[in-house]
Write a protein that binds this DNA or RNA. Structure first.
Lengths: 215, 215
DNA sequence: TTGAAAATCACCCAATGGGGTATTGTATTA
DNA sequence: TAATACAATACCCCATTGGGTGATTTTCAA
């Protein structure tokens, strides 16, 4: 049984090269190629891949966002992210996106095939350089982990704005000034927020907001 | 030049076995062994290792705490953590402690030696199982990154407790009940906290506490 | 087109929070 | 031993916040 691989990659040269390598190697098939993430859902439903090779720097929807959506909607499909990891801040976003492995963009083709095989078999291939960057990124940091999802408190956009400003430590007056609305309107929004979050004070609201990633 | 390795491991059998392997292999020396982390600083200053093999589950000071202190005070010493990683929550604590690599406790001796060699040469060895756990741990989580250090607001222990309860959303009354002190005493502590943090309201204090990892 | 949210503003009253000041005992340290 | 810092307690005054009630306008979907 061949491993069906779909490619998301904006560079045509790289895209074609990867496709050629995959189709030219026994055990692998390239079942789909996409230059961007715009139609990721349709692309995937057509190609039905086992493994997706995802470029992290794509125009429009980034590879991170597409990976997030794919792992959410198609948890059985493994995503292998290829990156240069120049941007340090993106490392942990990419980590949280739910990919199954990370390889470097200038790893040799043989590494690509090994990595694809490894994720297909439930492994988690990480290139040494990527691993090193990951560790040094987390080294001596304080990180707060937030329970996933459950963001369905039905807060309106305006209410989310208010809550965000509250989390930042503002009071009614400064929130009103920043939002160009009256003090009393801010209070009304906040009352609605409290009802929706089932809390009765500012600090409880802030706590809940942070705990559920509403900030 | 031989690589000088110090061992932190509470199990005597494992400890002796590791020592024997290291001393029996050309290129490696065991320069120190410790059954716990109580005297980590003296131990290290005596043995002056290049690499430390750290057991994560030790009595007293945990391996995570010791690793944190070592990487803080001796940034040139590489720490290689050996773990079973049964406890999922510990993964990211271990990550943030600043270790240079992670291997599984039941990896074969050959893997140990390879890993020690790899960290010594600036690499970041991560056992496949550990890598898989790490990725699945971060998968689809929201994470808040916090600026490191700068915790020198000179808060007393009691004040930190108060602040912690405030961050959790409690009011004066419930803080007083939980801490078994009076309402007015809580208020006094909180006033002191506000002065030390240079804030003037609860939400600002909460914000600052989270931003600086005081919670 | 009619109704349901959402967004805006306002007033009242009670509860909570914030700032100042003061006293007492205890522990640590110079 | 004296000085210093911290913990704990208490009171006053006023600012801010929380809850209720009510109203107008807009927007969006059934």
């Amino acid at each position: 049984m061949e491993i069906k691989v779909a490619i998301f990659e904006d560079n045509k040269l790289v895209r074609d090269a990867l496709q050629a390598i995959l189709n030219g190697t026994p055990g692998f098939t390239c079942c789909g190629i996409s230059a961007d993430g715009k139609h990721w859902e349709a692309d995937i439903k057509r190609s039905l891949p086992d493994v997706i090779l995802m470029d992290i720097e794509m125009p429009g929807l980034t590879g991170i966002e597409v990976t997030q959506k794919i792992t959410e909607h198609f948890p059985d499909i493994k995503v292998l992210i290829q990156t240069v990891f120049n941007d340090n801040e993106k490392i942990f976003q990419a980590l949280c996106a739910g990919a199954s492995g990370y390889i470097l963009k200038n790893d040799p083709p043989q590494k690509y095939l090994e990595a694809i095989n490894e994720v297909y078999n439930g492994g988690a291939p990480i290139s040494p350089t990527v691993a090193k960057r990951m560790l040094s990124f987390f080294s001596n940091r304080n990180v707060i982990l937030v329970s996933p999802g459950n963001n369905d408190f039905q807060l309106s956009e305006r209410e989310k704005e208010m809550l965000h400003l509250m989390v930042e430590g503002h009071n009614y007056k400064t929130i009103a000034e920043r939002s160009f609305i009256s003090y009393e309107t801010v209070r009304t929004h906040v009352k609605h927020i409290y009802k929706k979050l089932h809390v009765a004070s500012r600090s409880e609201a802030i706590n809940k907001a942070i705990q559920h990633g509403l900030s």
